[in-house]
Design a protein around this nucleic acid. Structure first.
Lengths: 185, 185
DNA sequence: CCGTATAGTTAAGCTGCCTCAACAGTCTTG
DNA sequence: CAAGACTGTTGAGGCAGCTTAACTATACGG
């Protein structure tokens, strides 16, 4: 039981991932990324940007000279693109296949985009693609899936293909809406 | 574009979630959870545990008096159970539906378990359950899905149901195996 | 070419989560 | 019931990532 500590060993942290994405998006949007732009884009102070840029430069993900524009290195671009792709794939899967509301999907995708391994993202892309294709099995499946009620009122571990010793759903449904309250507030 | 900053506003942090889970699991395993047990279980120092317990107590998630055993409050138990259920659901979805290797699934699940909203977990449970049920549409789908190659060699945005402007897969596949290298090292 | 506005940097300080070292409380055992 | 062995706490310190305040560099109009 040591995986959890590797949280901090990810190639980039949550913040770093968003800084890289900000740089990439500003580059395409306005042709350059400067400290002030990044600060505005992310809603942080300029000094925060400066120090994060130092850290990203040390990691070889960007290049930035004093008072100059910020450039992504090949490695930084790779990470930015991968994170962005993950985010898109996850969002589409959540909204289009799982049918989760837009704002929940966006929020969840934003939280986990950089944590999900490329392996999983690729498989998620495959599944979502196939689900949305016109393959008859996919069409049939979605029709049947949407038509089936999943109230789980008669739930029992024996009848459930996923739960084993206890109903997982019970511990999840009671918290549904928790995030919405915050979003609505 | 401000969602990303709400990362720190989650009900519990990554660390906290694992502390709660550790307490819950020690309680069922050996009947009680003490500082030393938690430290061993999580691979952190006892002093780290002490200070985290203070923080969790402040948040009303545990109760702990000096030199005593640690107890989860109702709220703490709710969170621990929810996190654990999310982890199980995500892991099963990743291994059984997406077909991702065990160690990748475990690692990813451990990273994101506390970040995905209950809404998403519930939907993931529904989908996984249905997929693994004996409903003919599910059987058919899985057969067809497994049989279809997803090499994406002939990929073009127009032919892909998910990618729009560019091939998302390209930015993902080049990084596949990155995590494995680390796991293998 | 100088003065001022704007953009960027440094410095100091905060919180979260960890460490190690030292101290204190509890338990066991002769 | 005291000695020594654990178990747990406190304290000081480190790193990440943020903040504000104060300083510096650049750029632009008169």
């Amino acid at each position: 039981m040591d995986i959890w500590k590797r949280f901090g060993e990810k190639e980039v942290s949550h913040s770093m991932a968003h800084y890289l994405q900000a740089v990439a998006s500003l580059k395409t949007e306005k042709g350059h990324a400067r400290v002030g732009d990044i600060a505005t884009h992310l809603g942080v102070s300029k000094s925060g940007v400066t120090s994060m840029l130092r850290s990203l430069q040390t990691r070889g993900l960007i290049s930035h000279e004093k008072y100059g524009c910020v450039e992504l290195t090949a490695n930084g671009l790779r990470l930015a693109e991968r994170t962005e792709s993950s985010r898109l794939v996850i969002t589409r899967f959540l909204t289009e296949i799982l049918g989760v509301p837009e704002h929940v999907a966006s929020e969840d995708a934003c939280m986990i985009e950089h944590l999900v391994s490329p392996e999983v993202s690729v498989e998620l892309l495959k599944l979502t693609s196939f689900m949305r294709s016109d393959h008859p099995a996919a069409r049939q499946f979605l029709l049947a899936y949407r038509a089936t009620p999943h109230n789980c009122t008669d739930h029992s571990p024996e009848s459930c293909a996923v739960c084993q010793t206890s109903c997982l759903r019970d511990s999840l449904v009671r918290d549904v809406g928790t995030a919405n309250e915050r979003a609505g507030a």
